[in-house]
Computed example of a mutant assay.
Amino acid sequence: MKIKRKIEIAVISDVHLGTYGCHARHLLTYLNSIEPKKLILNGDIVDIWQFKKRYFPKSHLSVIKKIMDFAANGTEVIYITGNHDEMLRKFTDTEIGNVSIVNKLVLDLDGKRAWFFHGDVFDISIQNAKWLAKLGGWGYDFLILINQLTNWILDKIGKERYSLSKKIKNSVKGAVKYINDFENVATDLAIENGYDYVVCGHIHQPKMLKKENKHGKTTYLNSGDWVENFTALEYQFKRWKIYNYNEDKMSAFYADEELKDMELQDLIAAITIVDRPKSDKKKKKSKD
């Protein structure tokens, strides 16, 4: 029997299910290793912008099934909408069982206030030129595909893997400035509103840092992504930590351990089936 880690809160973002860059099996390995009281999905979980009917593999469906299993077993699942899944914003404040959909979230954590949101509200390119942001998203997905081919070749010849997008982000001054500006705006607003923690996603840069200005201080946290960094945030024992799949993975847990023997059609049925009310079941039983 494998013992799962019990944690108070797990935060994941920028999974981008439905795209070639998503590493669903890595995420499933992580989700199979934890037992959270709260699971916060901080935006861009399903990439509705780039959704294609012809590409939504079993491992991606398994992630959705795993999240639903968490909710069914008592975990509170909070879905914070992002830009790639913005269509869900029309369902803001909807609650179905243990699952709720919101645009932002404030929690009291051991006497400290935590402010959760995806972060696209700070992105001028998305607000003013959505078509350009979508074009950038497709370009990013294409870059990830090239990177996967490159890494496959590097694996074959015994060389270390390489991230093209990370190299580009780290070398382009504009990208570095954008990330710094994002962090500064988020932390300044958090301090202004009296939040001890500000928890974001969106920029695919996992980070935990303390920021201070003349008005106060706060802790900035970013959950990163499951396209390049394979990271999440965890809160337990009054502390935050960044989980990194490459450094912290528990090899005893397999990607889709509980789901690997399910046929694709059975998996789809398990996700979409709706249980009849108990009264209906009793009626059916009495007829039988």
Score class of each variant (00 low, 15 high):
146 I>M: 10
170 N>V: 07
153 I>V: 13
62 S>A: 15
131 W>G: 03
34 I>G: 06
144 I>V: 04
143 L>C: 09
50 Q>S: 14
56 F>A: 07
249 K>N: 01
219 T>F: 10
90 K>A: 12
287 K>D: 12
212 E>C: 09
271 I>H: 13
227 V>Y: 02
54 R>I: 09
129 A>K: 14
66 K>Y: 05
26 H>V: 03
93 D>L: 08
84 H>T: 12
112 K>D: 07
204 H>Y: 14
213 N>D: 10
167 K>F: 15
122 F>R: 02
15 V>P: 00
216 G>T: 04
33 S>N: 04
196 D>N: 15
176 V>P: 01
122 F>P: 00
260 K>D: 08
166 K>G: 01
46 V>W: 02
192 E>K: 15
119 G>H: 05
89 R>G: 08
215 H>Q: 11
102 V>L: 13
107 L>R: 14
157 I>D: 02
192 E>D: 13
218 T>M: 06
40 I>S: 03
172 V>I: 13
76 E>V: 11
279 S>H: 11
40 I>L: 08
97 G>C: 00
33 S>D: 06
67 I>C: 12
209 L>R: 15
95 E>Q: 14
260 K>P: 00
87 M>A: 13
104 K>L: 01
249 K>W: 00
281 K>G: 03
6 K>M: 10
19 T>C: 00
174 G>E: 03
105 L>E: 14
13 S>F: 02
7 I>A: 13
137 G>C: 05
165 S>D: 09
141 D>S: 13
60 H>Y: 01
212 E>D: 05
79 Y>I: 10
278 K>F: 15
243 Y>T: 07
175 A>F: 14
163 S>P: 07
288 D>F: 03
178 Y>A: 10
83 N>H: 08
201 G>S: 12
170 N>Q: 14
79 Y>M: 15
245 Y>P: 00
218 T>Y: 07
222 N>D: 09
109 L>G: 08
27 L>A: 05
185 V>H: 00
28 L>A: 03
208 M>V: 05
204 H>M: 15
8 E>L: 07
225 D>M: 10
234 E>R: 02
195 Y>T: 02
251 S>Q: 01
35 E>F: 13
90 K>W: 04
227 V>E: 08
46 V>T: 06
140 Y>S: 11
171 S>F: 03
274 V>F: 12
191 I>H: 06
14 D>L: 01
66 K>E: 08
167 K>C: 05
78 I>A: 10
261 D>V: 11
128 N>I: 08
109 L>H: 13
275 D>P: 07
134 K>Y: 04
192 E>C: 03
12 I>K: 05
255 A>T: 01
197 Y>H: 04
49 W>K: 02
61 L>Q: 10
91 F>K: 04
39 L>M: 14
10 A>G: 04
265 Q>I: 03
154 L>F: 11
39 L>C: 11
178 Y>K: 02
33 S>Q: 06
163 S>I: 09
14 D>F: 00
124 I>S: 08
59 S>I: 03
250 M>D: 14
251 S>N: 05
131 W>R: 15
232 A>Q: 04
47 D>Y: 06
59 S>C: 11
211 K>S: 02
213 N>Q: 07
219 T>M: 13
75 T>S: 04
282 K>T: 14
161 R>A: 02
190 A>Y: 05
94 T>K: 10
176 V>Q: 13
127 Q>H: 14
129 A>C: 11
186 A>K: 00
282 K>S: 01
198 V>I: 12
151 N>P: 03
35 E>S: 15
